[in-house]
Design a protein around this nucleic acid. Structure first.
Lengths: 368, 368
DNA sequence: CTGTTAGCGCTTTCAG
DNA sequence: CTGAAAGCGCTAACAG
């Protein structure tokens, strides 16, 4: 192949044109204080005239060991991740925090677990990784670790203690939602959860399955709720899961719960998205919420407040911002080759509870 | 600063350790067919033992002129872009199309128009740009063009003919929605639109303001609707806009429309998100849709179908996939230095109309 | 199948 | 304020 015919300009070429050194041109872009304003203007003008828009980012990265982008690994295919409002808010927070730093985020698409998409992780041109809510044995997490770049784990896995972590205490966080149902007088409740295992399985979940779940976050929420119910003497709590967290799946999960367990007077959901599915299913079926059925969510996404959902708020945006800040620091330390202040910070952000308007006394208090 | 003490392995270092040449090690990763499987295994094992996870992506990029990531420029701050369901679906489609190619997407955060965030564009380490729905004079678009990398424009601006374009015919696309209202007998209708100008202005929009709008997509939708209404003899059509497309803004816009124009029996919205705002406002106010008010949307996001919204479907996912494919081809051509089959394809994707259940005859047919 | 050669385009000491 | 030298880590011919 012949050399690129449409020869792009380079730092060297424009320096040559102007009869000055490459350093000076480089300084014009990176260290404006290192040369006279006039010369700088002259250089910039010449560059513009030649269609040169500044130092090539790739070459610069190689030299400086800095890209200006964080890789983001999401649990699932992007298309599903985007359907989860909580993760969207997280990304927004991360983006906002990076913005001042002129950083971008590289969304690394990871395919289904059985495909070989770890290569994308291996070859991602990034300064570090944000690993968002993946299973304990996720291969992409392993691939990211192999890169030896700074990493921050968000939400899960819980139990990797040699890596920075940002998350919430899911087990505790969900309890106010369960308690709200208990306090309202419910004795027959069902739980709807997003998947707790890597492999797909939709439908009822057994106690053993909960015990062995790889997805710690959902597991902790389910367990936290069950604990609260047990403490109130409620022991028979059906749990139904769906692999995906999209609206259709949620609506269908609501249907399954109410058809298989018509006795339940309340449904506790481990995500707001699922709760919306229940609300919409009820609306379609003419079931009054909270008159005939109480519903709680988890996440506290904006829409939850708009719709008056009883839910637990986790500060998704703040979580994103916090992650950005931590990763930024780690990358700085890494690039400048000094030890970070704290190599493995562990941040557990507090959650709050919003009573909302979707919990009321059970329709038939005789059951209680 | 001393050289990195925690010396990362390199191709050269592991080649030296094994007493073979760098090429061979490189081949072990990039051209497995160029060496014996045994040797390859040996190399990979040695690499793993030394914590070397493969050729450094930055160095590789510099050499190959390929990063494996597309830059995505979104109109607004990410946080708002993410709230627009249509753009999320677009991104999902783009991600899906890139997935097979082991490509990622780099979301380039662009701040408010008055800040200098073009530098992020100048320094983004990417193979090309997707410019998603920006104003005609957007500075980030200009910065992306200066990079001289392949670019695909999505939705708007309409009128840059030397760059590939993927979009829909908004002016035509919205007409079935307007027509549905006309056919149902509505004569007093209002239009709710997302911003049509760069600078923030919430409230009523005048005819001149529509004429001079920089945001072509929303303008075309408004104009298309107005044309359809005029053709039916409906000339007084109030238009109200909101800068942001989030739920709260939409609810408030609905309130403004119904308070300032209590005579309207139907509201046409230029996005589904706004239509949801109207639906929720009505639900809160006890206004029956479509009994007392008809509503139409635009975009055809999944939730629109779930909620039975009368709307226009634009194939967001397919748009994303198409953009990915085009950009991929352009990048290939660019990198391999041959002319692309078509340097400036222009793809206008057809839209469809979903009648839904949010349009009915006006509440007071005497007005018609 | 393996090695040698020649950069990709840039930034950074370190002397002038 | 400017320039010369020295690579960052890698891959792509091309010759053995």
């Amino acid at each position: 192949m012949p050399p690129r015919p449409v020869k792009r300009g380079t730092l060297a070429s424009i320096a040559a044109d102007l009869g000055i050194s490459r350093t000076t041109v480089s300084n014009a872009y990176n260290h404006p204080d290192q040369l006279s304003p006039e010369l700088r203007e002259k250089i910039l003008a010449a560059a513009a005239a030649r269609g040169y828009s500044g130092p090539d980012p790739m070459a610069r990265s190689l030299r400086t060991r800095r890209v200006g982008s964080f890789g983001v690994l999401l649990t699932e295919q992007l298309s599903f991740a985007f359907e989860d409002l909580a993760s969207i808010e997280f990304l927004a927070g991360l983006a906002a925090s990076s913005f001042g730093k002129r950083n971008s985020m590289t969304l690394v698409p990871v395919g289904p677990h059985d495909e070989d998409s770890t290569q994308t992780v291996q070859q991602a041109v990034v300064d570090g990784f944000v690993v968002y809510s993946v299973a304990a044995d996720d291969r992409h997490l392993a691939a990211a670790r192999a890169r030896q770049l700074p990493i921050v784990i968000v939400d899960q896995p819980y139990d990797i203690f040699d890596l920075p972590y940002v998350g919430i205490d899911d087990r505790v966080a969900i309890q106010p939602a369960a308690q709200a149902l208990i306090d309202a007088g419910h004795r027959r409740v069902g739980i709807l959860t997003k998947r707790i295992h890597q492999e797909r399985m939709d439908g009822p979940v057994t106690a053993e399955q909960i015990e062995t779940a790889e997805l710690h976050v959902q597991r902790a929420r389910v367990q936290g709720a069950i604990e609260a119910f047990e403490a109130a003497g409620i022991t028979e709590v059906p749990v139904i899961s769906r692999h995906f967290n999209d609206h259709a799946a949620a609506v269908d999960a609501a249907r399954e719960m109410l058809e298989c367990h018509p006795e339940v007077t309340a449904i506790l959901c481990t995500t707001d998205s699922m709760a919306f599915g229940v609300l919409d299913y009820c609306a379609a079926q003419g079931i009054d919420v909270p008159g005939q059925l109480s519903v709680t969510g988890f996440d506290g996404v904006e829409l939850a407040h708009v719709r008056g959902l009883t839910t637990v708020n986790q500060p998704n945006r703040r979580k994103g911002a916090m992650v950005g800040k931590i990763l930024e620091e780690l990358v700085d330390a890494y690039v400048n080759d000094h030890a970070p202040a704290d190599p493995t910070p562990r941040v557990v952000i507090p959650t709050t509870f919003t009573p909302g308007q979707t919990v009321a006394a059970p329709r038939n208090s005789a059951l209680a």
